[in-house]
Design a protein around this nucleic acid. Structure first.
Lengths: 193, 193
DNA sequence: CTCAGTTTTGAATGATTGTTCAAGACTATC
DNA sequence: GATAGTCTTGAACAATCATTCAAAACTGAG
């Protein structure tokens, strides 16, 4: 039918996400996107407005489908301490199998664009806040079940874990050495004592 | 004299460093550099070869004059625990007075270019390794003087501190909230118990 | 005062940037 | 089978990109 696009918008966005994720915003050209998404220039502009709007859509998709969905799953299907342990362990696994060193799309964006673009900055900041809150909720839950020492200041620890996680994700791009990253994950977990 | 440049190369490099630092590599155009360095295009190319070579020179300058010199000073003029405390505290001070949110040039570069450019990646990785070693040496020294518990695994802690510091420097660009950053600094210090 | 050697200058290079748009392809409805 | 309405296509847009280069400006040496 001529009034239905003959490509799947969500598939296209998924591809765009992958391209921006590994190359960043500035270093990705529309030519890269045309080639990587398998669409024509016009179709991309018709569907996504502009490069920046496409980037924002891709970033939001990552935040929703990768970060948020994953954290929800961890929180719902594991006991508190194990949820945090798995968060770090699964990142370690992903990083050590990712030869292209793409790291975390949101964290990459935090440094490349967030400081210069308020709208994108707000998305990144909100995502980081939610991750901090994930840690906070899980720590509180762990303190109720007795898995985590009740005298720990949940707010401070959740922030320390967030910083450790982000540090890990930066090092994943510049020094993806398994031993280094394992030390960091272990160090983060040790703060839950 | 015609065989002496009538501008100071080091001053020019300092200015270039500031521009790349706050805008990043890709988002900085030669036009920005011409304007910001106060030099003509030709003079820049004559002196620094290319945009990429200028960026590398600026990055090395930052590593030497900012990171390395500062860590040496901290290590030499303060007792171990206080050296680390001051490292975090002084970053906090810098960050909270930096309205342009430039963060740390090396950390910004780690995410923007290091993963795609081997030469730049090597500079960033080396700098991160040296910072890790700084922590390691200071922790070891602190264990000798008794300021830091001798049963702590210095290597793991130094890596945990590196991750916390980098996490802090990322958040400085996306969520420069004083309370958040203080929590992280305190959390890092708490690991030295 | 001329010459040699270097720097400075700004215009011009071709390539690539993000974006637009008119023409062509398509199909459900009449 | 003609019409209407949407999507696809690829060429073309002006702007900007990093880079080059020949001419002008300069100054110490002869």
């Amino acid at each position: 039918m001529p009034w239905e696009k003959n490509f799947n918008i969500d598939d296209a966005l998924e591809k765009a996400m992958g391209i921006f994720w590994s190359r960043g915003y500035e270093a990705t050209s529309m030519q890269d996107l045309v080639h990587g998404m398998g669409l024509n220039r016009g179709s991309i502009y018709d569907t996504f407005e502009s490069k920046r709007a496409l980037f924002i859509a891709a970033l939001k998709r990552y935040d929703r489908k990768c970060r948020h969905a994953w954290l929800c799953d961890l929180e719902n299907t594991h006991p508190p301490r194990k949820a945090i342990r798995r968060l770090f362990d699964e990142w370690l696994e992903v990083i050590s199998h990712d030869s292209s060193r793409r790291g975390c799309f949101l964290t990459n964006t935090a440094l490349e664009v967030a400081a210069h673009d308020d709208e994108i900055g707000a998305i990144v900041a909100a995502s980081q806040k939610e991750t901090e809150k994930f840690f906070y909720r899980v720590i509180k839950a762990g303190q109720k079940t007795g898995e985590i020492a009740p005298d720990l200041h949940a707010k401070d620890i959740s922030r320390a874990l967030l910083a450790a996680l982000i540090g890990l994700l930066v090092l994943a791009r510049s020094r993806p050495e398994r031993a280094l990253m394992r030390s960091i994950a272990d160090g983060a977990m040790a703060q839950l004592r």
